[in-house]
């Protein structure tokens, strides 16, 4: 499943990041990495608000599309 398709409140584990763009290096440094648990807190417009450990990270769906979760 893609991170983009996760339902509100659901908690998932990141399996793979397939994005090749530079911005994914930042996404990873912010804690969205293989093996991490993330929960979807909120969806507003094109953005997802995720809880990653104790921080809250917002990413747009065009990035979430490249993140495989289960």
């Amino acid at each position: 499943m893609k991170l983009e398709e996760v339902e509100l409140g659901q908690e998932v584990v990141i399996v793979d990041l397939s994005g090749k763009e530079e911005v994914f290096k930042k996404v990873e440094a912010m804690g969205l990495r293989r093996g991490r648990r993330v929960a979807l807190l909120q969806k507003v417009g094109r953005n997802l608000l995720l809880k990653v450990n104790n921080s809250r990270v917002v990413i747009s769906k065009d990035l979430a599309r490249h993140i495989e979760v289960q």
Partner: peptide
């Protein structure tokens, strides 16, 4: 233009 940011507490 992607959107990536952190929301602090």
């Amino acid at each position: 233009y992607h959107f990536v940011m952190e929301l602090p507490p």
